[in-house]
């Protein structure tokens, strides 16, 4: 009999943290797919390193979120219960992270978009009213800077490399850009976090994000598609079709070995 799913607190503070932790986790999951398959050995090591950092961040944030559930009158959970026993609808990662790994251009562009965002977010979270979160952020912001450098350098190389690399980078922008507005959508989860000082509204990071990403894409010689009305909704638990497959793969062992100890 497979292991049953857990119920997660609806508390907006918990959800705010789950958005952060889940985004790191699912992005790490996609990056891990490059292991042994990167274009050159040095990049295999680099991408795996980034994935490792993100897993570390996910673990720290999910652990904090799980403890917060208990502090807020719900059932506490640990990082693994949250990662392996939640249903899809309770995962709050950005849809951007669950899109397939894609080619190297898709990967570095996605990394650039997310790392830039996280750098700005972690910087703000360093002054979170929650000391645990502030501590996590102090370490994570250094990692995010490193991830951003790595990704931005590659965006420039691909944009200014060969015709093929620029075309692939353009295709990556066309493909991923529609999923970026979700980063800055506002809702009551953000409001609650801003009120208590847990963290900033993500919408406040938009200007800073654009100020870094847009010149980067310009310098790389790629155009952004015109804005659309489409909004992805992973942050609210309604994901793309890809999420089901990711979770099936990620959760399979815990689901098939209920009560297992690893």
């Amino acid at each position: 009999m497979p292991a049953a799913s857990i119920d997660v607190a609806r508390d907006p503070h918990v959800q705010y943290l789950l958005r952060v932790g889940d985004t790191c986790l699912i992005q790490a999951q996609r990056l891990a797919e490059w292991c042994g398959h990167a274009p050159v050995l040095e990049e295999d090591i680099a991408l795996t390193n980034i994935a490792l950092d993100l897993v570390g961040q996910a673990r720290a944030v999910l652990s904090r979120a799980g403890r917060l559930e208990g502090e807020r009158g719900g059932v506490p959970h640990d990082e693994d219960e949250l990662a392996f026993l939640r249903d899809e609808r309770d995962f709050l990662n950005l849809t951007l992270t669950e899109l397939p790994r894609g080619d190297f251009a898709v990967t570095v562009l996605r990394n650039a978009a997310l790392a830039t965002f996280f750098k700005l977010l972690w910087q703000r979270l360093e002054s979170s009213s929650d000391p645990d979160v502030a501590g996590i952020a102090a370490k994570a912001v250094k990692e995010a800077r490193y991830h951003q450098r790595h990704a931005a350098d590659w965006v420039l190389r691909l944009g200014g490399g060969t015709d093929e690399s620029r075309q692939r980078l353009q295709a990556a922008v066309d493909h991923l850009w529609p999923y970026t507005p979700e980063l800055f959508d506002a809702d009551d989860v953000d409001d609650a976090a801003a009120s208590s000082g847990l963290g900033p509204r993500w919408a406040e990071l938009e200007a800073g994000w654009r100020a870094e990403i847009e010149p980067l894409l310009d310098e790389a010689g790629v155009k952004r598609p015109p804005p659309r009305a489409f909004r992805s909704t992973g942050k609210r638990g309604v994901h793309s079709e890809h999420m089901g497959y990711i979770l099936a793969e990620m959760q399979t062992l815990q689901r098939s070995y209920p009560g297992g100890v690893w």
């Binding site: 090591i45 680099a46 790595h150 350098d153």
Partner: peptide, 12 residues
């Protein structure tokens, strides 16, 4: 390039 060499050297 040199930027990549430094980053990789750090990683490896």
């Amino acid at each position: 390039d040199a930027a990549m060499a430094i980053q990789m050297a750090r990683d490896v």
